[in-house]
Amino acid sequence: MSSELVEALNVLEKDKGISRDVLVEAIEAALVSAYRRNFNQAQNVRTDLNLATGSIRVFARKDVVEEVFDSRLEISLEDAHKVNPSYDIGDVVEIEVTPKDFGRIAAQTAKQVVTQRVREAERGIIYSEFIDREDDIMTGIVQRKDNRFTYVSLGKVEALLPPSEQAANEHYQPHDRIKVYITKVEKTTKGPQIFVSRTHPGLLKRLFEIEVPEIYDGTVEIRSVAREAGDRSKISVYTDHPDVDPIGACVGPKGSRVQAIVNELNGEKIDIVEWSNDPVEFVANALSPSKVLDVIVDEKDKATTVVVPDYQLSLAIGKRGQNARLAAKLTGWKIDIKSESDAREAGIYPRSESLSVEEDNSFDDTNEEIE
């Protein structure tokens, strides 16, 4: 066994963080298997790797017995005394049985073990790095695609982007740089598997944290996100700082901040609305850009009936019900939208205590739609 192995173990311990003792133990165990396999031996043996010289020796271990039934595993007391007169019944005698050409086999075996352990250690390091990045965002480069996944390089590992996590308006080509949201990290026998998404609401939230310093430092909070990836999203924001406009902070100067996010999501429309703990106000905000005349709240069923001007009914509902659907996801309240004329006919509008946006136009001033 070449002394180069010893130097290699020292380098691995320093550069890869793999304990030299662990590697030596693994090599010795592998050498036992190699000895039994290559020399058709079944006896109990151990190997000894001399780190000072790089030499390897094999020792057969035999129990000292009065009567020998299996010479591969046992030795008589008389023969044991030939090795050392101090041996007694029940002791274990070690006899060197190193084959002449065992050095070549040992070197090959050691190389395989070291390579395997290095690979396992690197996989462990990658897993440890990425398990801490679940629910985080990373920039990757599209490598290739097949029927099951689009493969995105995240540097040390290829992440898997399933079709179900791809936006309908996006088509990825090799070498495209895209931001992805890490949804799951799994440890497998082939190494860590990283699953990523382009449709997860968390991607939108992380993009705002990157682009908006007030969100990153906690001045402005994102309270909820509703997303239909590739088409339209809504986020609600809040701040308890009286001098900070949470919506204006997210939009940025001339819309620059939110426009960067829209560009990253390939034109996905984003509505930014102000969060409120008052369901009347929050639901009205969430239906932006539609004007709301009244919100009737049923606390028991966590449902609301929203009255909108006749000419804005289709806007409030949205294409294929999208605006109302996203508003319901955003607020967590069921939303039933009625036109003003239908509400009057049903006798639920107007109410003396109703909220009228025709009298209070704050919703028009604060709600933003970015396309």
Rank of each mutant, 00 (worst) to 15 (best):
350 P>R: 05
281 E>N: 10
279 P>A: 04
47 T>N: 07
99 P>T: 01
231 D>T: 11
144 R>A: 10
338 K>D: 01
280 V>G: 08
231 D>K: 05
163 P>L: 10
241 H>V: 05
74 E>A: 11
280 V>I: 14
148 R>N: 13
192 P>D: 05
301 D>S: 14
225 V>K: 04
291 K>M: 10
55 S>R: 15
30 A>Y: 03
241 H>Q: 13
173 Q>A: 04
108 Q>R: 10
171 H>L: 15
337 I>D: 02
254 K>M: 09
70 D>Y: 07
27 I>G: 04
103 G>D: 15
111 K>I: 09
80 A>D: 09
232 R>Y: 05
225 V>A: 00
94 E>C: 12
49 L>H: 07
223 R>S: 09
260 A>M: 06
18 I>A: 04
314 S>I: 03
42 A>H: 12
36 R>H: 13
6 V>T: 13
103 G>S: 14
320 R>D: 13
335 I>F: 08
15 D>T: 12
157 V>C: 01
341 S>N: 11
237 V>Q: 03
182 I>P: 08
36 R>M: 05
101 D>C: 00
293 L>N: 06
99 P>S: 08
63 D>H: 13
79 D>A: 12
207 L>P: 05
234 K>W: 02
271 D>K: 00
29 A>T: 13
76 S>Y: 08
231 D>Q: 06
119 R>W: 02
231 D>Y: 14
54 G>I: 05
293 L>D: 10
19 S>C: 00
212 V>T: 03
149 F>S: 08
50 N>Y: 10
77 L>T: 11
173 Q>R: 14
310 D>S: 01
67 E>R: 12
214 E>G: 09
332 G>N: 10
3 S>M: 07
82 K>I: 08
343 A>Y: 06
113 V>G: 09
114 V>K: 05
241 H>K: 12
41 Q>W: 06
16 K>H: 11
103 G>T: 03
87 Y>G: 09
29 A>H: 13
212 V>M: 01
314 S>H: 02
350 P>T: 04
239 T>K: 01
368 E>P: 00
287 L>P: 08
